[in-house]
């Protein structure tokens, strides 16, 4: 950890306590033949750069454009999502929950932080925070207000609690006035938060 010194000798390195523990664990596991450092680096690279909410946005845009795909996504989200090349490594099943004019869907994991990694990447800070995990269930409308999502009073909010086996992807409502847009242009309107349910899809031409 960096720290300020006013003396001028060659000072020693400090290895952060947590960094030292992880390094120790990796060495123990490598010696037991359970992990390979190169494979660990590849996993980090994948999650830092290759998976993210753009994957989910492609799924949503396809569902908006293609009614057959949309039906497939409703009935067997795991397979429909895998057909676009996005598969989970934890053997989890996916369920797509579609927003309608009557019902808005909101996803949480009250127990820990189960999240549809293959389509959304890793969860944002707030998704993992107890403040979100506990309040999303007790007061979903209040939580949505904090995200500046204002729903009509008559809109029902349905909260989905993720598990290790089942993860949810919200399919937001397709914004009005987007009939002429291509699938790619539509995908650009699908935000990460809109697929968790803490946001709505962007309006076209909105900055």
């Amino acid at each position: 950890m960096p720290h300020a010194h006013d003396h001028d000798h060659d000072h020693d390195n400090d290895l952060d306590h947590m960094a030292a523990r992880v390094r120790a664990l990796e060495i123990i596991l490598t010696q037991k033949g359970l992990v390979e450092p190169a494979a660990i680096d590849a996993i980090v690279d994948t999650y830092e750069t290759k998976v993210g909410p753009r994957n989910g946005a492609k799924v949503v845009a396809r569902a908006w454009c293609d009614p057959d795909y949309s039906n497939w996504l409703k009935q067997d989200a795991t397979a429909a999502i895998a057909s676009l090349g996005f598969t989970g490594r934890q053997g989890e099943h996916m369920q797509a929950v579609f927003n309608t004019e009557d019902t808005h869907n909101l996803v949480v994991c009250t127990l820990c932080s189960c999240y549809p990694w293959s389509v959304l990447g890793l969860p944002p800070v707030w998704y993992k925070a107890p403040a979100y995990r506990s309040r999303a269930v007790i007061d979903p409308r209040g939580v949505l207000e904090e995200f500046d999502v204002d729903l009509p009073a008559q809109t029902k909010i349905r909260v989905w609690d993720s598990t290790a086996e089942l993860r949810y992807l919200v399919v937001p409502l397709r914004p009005k006035g987007t009939e002429g847009l291509s699938e790619e242009e539509l995908a650009a309107l699908v935000t990460r938060d809109s697929m968790i349910g803490t946001g709505l899809a962007l309006e076209p031409y909105q900055p």
């Binding site: 990796e26 934890q90 990447g121 403040a131 995200f147």
Partner: peptide, 29 residues
């Protein structure tokens, strides 16, 4: 919750390298 939201735009998956290592070890195991 509101206090956390300014970080919502921070899309970095991990704030320190050891977090990424711990995450990856878990997936590998």
């Amino acid at each position: 919750l509101h206090d956390l939201l300014p970080q919502a735009d921070d899309d970095r998956a991990f704030s320190e390298p050891w977090q990424a290592q711990a995450f990856a070890l878990t997936l590998a195991l």
